[in-house]
Every structure is written in structure tokens, then in C-alpha cells.
Amino acid sequence: MIKNLLQTFWIFTKVSLSTFGGGYSMMPQFQHELVERRQWLSEEELANFYALAQCQPGAFAVNTAVLVSTSRYGAAAGFVAAAGIVLAPVLFILGLALLLNRHADIPQIAQAMAGIKVVVAALVLHNVWLFLKTGLRNPLYLGVFASSLILLAFGLFSPIIVLLLSAAAAILIGILRKKKGSRP
């Protein structure tokens, strides 16, 4: 039991530390570690967990790790997997932040950060597009997208209110459509 938990912790620490650029770039590592190397599950099963991980709040990588580990070794392994994927990168980035703070007077650091900031702006716009392109033909999707953008950009509501309104609107429209569709 303890051995399984230690193994779980180690697997997700390794996967987490060896990927850059956020949750989705962990997919090849998950595939390599879980399907090919450890043979915990098949590729199809992993794809199912990916779909589930997207249908819930939180970071994609954390969700996938918890889902896979819980279904393999139970709830304790789920917590251990979350700790594994979180702990090492957090320690790393806090160390990095302390280091950069200490050497804030080096002009190259500020210049590099300014350059990366431009790249991050490009990456985030791409992120928006990846979301948007799944719903381009769907008027409900585009409507919710545009109204959320406007509501937040003009500071009318907080993000939570925007999300709650959007979920409520989508459920309401879904129910209305269902009623309309069920009529003869």
C-alpha cells in the first residue's frame, strides 16, 4: 500500500517537473508514464479521463492525476497524486522568485521578463482561440463569450458572478430547448 502511494507520488512529481507550458503539455508525459511504462491503463481510458478532467474546475494536470490515481489505488492515492504534481513545481517556482528578487538589479533580468511578457500575451490569445474555436458555429457559445468579455472588461461584475450567470443561462436555455424539442 505504502509502496503504491510512494510510486504514485514519484510518478506525478516526475511528470510535473519535466513539463513546461501548462497542463495540456503534460499529455505526452502522462501517456508515456501511465500507458506505456507503468501500464496503469489503456490509451482509450486515459482519453476518457482527459474528457472528465476538462468537465470540472481546477488545473487540467491535477485533475487528470487525481482521477487516474483514485481509480487505480483509491482516494488516498488521489491525494498523494495531487501532492506529487503540486509540491515540486511550487518549491521550484518559489525558489526562482526568491532568486530573481535578490538579483532584481541586473538589467538583463528585467529585459528578459519584458520579452517573455510579449510571448505570454501571444500564448494567452492563442489560449482564448483554442477555447473559442470549439464553439464558432454555436450562437449560445458566442453569445456567452461576448457577454462575459464585455461584463468583465468594463468591470461590471466579478468573475464568479459572470461564471454563475453563464452556467445558469446555459442550463435555462438547455431546459427550454428540451421542452421545445419534445413537443410533437
Partner: peptide
Amino acid sequence: SGLRPATAGL
């Protein structure tokens, strides 16, 4: 189906 486009908008 509402939360995803809202997240994109935010």
C-alpha cells in the same frame, strides 16, 4: 456548455 465560453470571455 455555459462555463466554457464564459471562461474564454473572461
